[in-house]
């Protein structure tokens, strides 16, 4: 058992290392803050070639080019928003994991709110129905008969 655990720890360590190693570019930054911004930005964008990998996680040539573009823009002192606009103007909403609200994307943004409202409506309907059913009181004769029925068992 302990051998198995050791193996799992070893394997997960190796996997973690290969994942980290696949994305290392050797780049020089003027400040640590610039480097942090670069890392956050390349994590934020989706690689246009690969359907579900971000720029930092992809080895596709286009991801390397776009990482270089982001690096250049960060080094040139552009704001994060300017860099987002730069990529969006060239590659469209596809590169953004959080697409802006528009006619085309309204559906995906509104569905969670719609489902929440639907759930609340169902909950409310069930509760009010339950309340209506509880409100039936028994008459004196019914209580007497109920007691007779219960006690007749013994």
């Amino acid at each position: 058992m302990s051998k198995l655990i050791a193996l799992i720890i070893l394997l997960s360590g190796i996997m973690g290392l290969t994942h980290a190693a696949s994305t290392v570019d050797v780049l020089a930054f003027e400040s640590e803050q610039q480097q942090r911004r670069y890392k956050a930005l390349i994590d934020e964008f989706r690689c246009p070639k690969c359907l579900n990998t971000n720029l930092s996680g992809s080895d596709a040539p286009i991801a390397q080019d776009l990482r270089r573009s982001v690096y250049r823009l960060v080094r040139d002192g552009h704001t994060d928003q300017h860099i987002r606009d730069f990529l969006q103007q060239r590659y469209g909403d596809f590169v953004l994991y959080k697409p802006p609200f528009s006619g085309r994307t309204a559906f995906i943004w509104l569905i969670p709110i719609g489902l929440l409202l639907l759930g609340m409506a169902v909950l409310f309907a069930l509760q009010s129905r339950g309340r209506r059913q509880q409100a039936v009181a028994l008459s004196a004769a019914e209580i007497k008969r109920l007691n007779e029925l219960i006690s007749s068992d013994d």
Binding site: P48, K49, I62, D65, Y91
Partner: peptide, 13 residues
């Protein structure tokens, strides 16, 4: 040669 015009054009392949 370095793909810079490609980036301007939104080329991904």
């Amino acid at each position: 040669a370095d793909g810079a015009i490609g980036v301007e054009l939104g080329v991904y392949g």
